Amino acid sequence: MENLRRMALFAQVVQHGSMSAAARALGMSTSAISQQVRALEQEAGVALLHRSTRQLSLTDVGSRYYAACARLLDAAGEAAAELSAARHAPSGELRLSAPLGMADHVGPALGAWLRDNPQLRLHLHFEDGWTDLVQARIDLALRFGQLPDSDWMAQRLGTLQRWPCAAPDWLRRHGPPADPLQVPAGEWLGLAQVPGLAWRHRASGQERRVPAHPRLVSHNQPAVRQLCVSGLGVAVLTCLDVMPMLADGRLVRLLPEWDVPALPVWAVTPHRQTQPAKVRQAIELLGRYLAGIPGVGDSGA
């Protein structure tokens, strides 16, 4: 590595025409530049420069050697420019991991941005589990709920309200409950975490722990939503899952006076250092999109 540095210094000396001019450009002393070039010559066992009191000139081997060193310097400049461009303009491939419930939302959130940046590619990985971001080479992951301890960087984008919902057909058969305990234990659908939810009455502050024994359990939230639409029971779904279905009447929100804890949404990245533009801008756009959805709370930032 030290030899590469000396090669770059040698190329700078030739390009600036003298050691003193190169020293001024690089913020070094002339003697330090001279020592580095002399060390390069001693290691090679050949003279690279003809020195005189007035000017420097290249030897024959020095001229050929300079051509290679100049290519090295140009490549380093191109690498630095590539890093600078990555910091300021989105480019390359963005590898994004998100829960299955976000599948309908990535397009509206990022579509215009992708159209405006044709040099950017998007690789989507949808799952409800916890992918190892480094092993999967993920640049950005959206995560819901409480995060496990890790060295990753997490930024909260907002909170999702969770609402108990049922199909009109279920309501015709069972009637609208006034209390979570009025929902038969076997009529719940969804994740195994439903029994652990703490329900709180907004006006009185009363709390409930519902002894739910879900009739159908799945770790795939879109599947739970579809089972709910089919009238098979009551599911606690996020506002992201149900807004279109509440709007067109396929689902009805139950127990509007009762709240369950909101679900935090996180943007998680595997690196804590400065993020490239593609990651910074994607986080900003996803946060802005979520903020425009009814039922999404602010980021708490």
Rank of each mutant, 00 (worst) to 15 (best):
L58F: 00
L58S: 00
L58Q: 00
D60T: 13
G62P: 01
G62N: 02
G62C: 01
Y65F: 11
Y65M: 06
A68W: 02
A68D: 00
L73H: 13
L73G: 12
L73K: 12
D74A: 15
E78Q: 14
E78F: 14
E78I: 14
A79N: 13
A79L: 15
S84L: 14
A85P: 02
A85K: 08
A86N: 05
A86M: 12
H88K: 03
A89I: 04
S91P: 00
S91L: 00
G92P: 06
L96M: 05
L96V: 03
L96H: 05
S97T: 07
A98Y: 08
A98C: 02
P99Y: 06
L100E: 13
G101N: 05
A103Y: 00
G107Q: 10
P108V: 04
P108L: 06
A112Y: 03
A112D: 10
A112T: 10
W113L: 06
R115P: 07
R115L: 14
R115I: 10
N117M: 02
N117F: 01
N117C: 05
N117S: 07
P118D: 05
R121M: 12
R121T: 11
L122D: 06
L122N: 06
H123L: 13
H123V: 09
H123I: 11
L124Y: 09
F126V: 02
G129Y: 15
W130E: 14
W130K: 14
W130R: 12
T131D: 08
T131K: 04
T131Q: 08
D132K: 09
V134Q: 13
V134E: 13
Q135T: 00
A136S: 09
R137N: 08
D139E: 11
L140Q: 05
A141D: 06
R143H: 12
L147Q: 14
S150C: 15
S150R: 15
M153Y: 15
M153R: 15
Q155M: 11
G158A: 09
Q161A: 13
R162G: 09
W163G: 06
W163I: 14
P164D: 12
A166Q: 04
D169T: 11
W170G: 04
W170T: 08
L171S: 12
L171C: 15
R173A: 14
H174K: 13
H174S: 15
H174F: 15
P177V: 06
A178C: 01
A178W: 06
D179T: 12
D179C: 09
D179H: 10
P180V: 07
P180G: 07
Q182N: 09
P184G: 03
A185R: 07
A185V: 11
G186Q: 03
E187K: 06
W188T: 07
L189P: 03
G190K: 07
L191R: 11
A192H: 09
P195V: 10
G196A: 03
L197N: 10
H201N: 04
H201T: 03
R202Y: 01
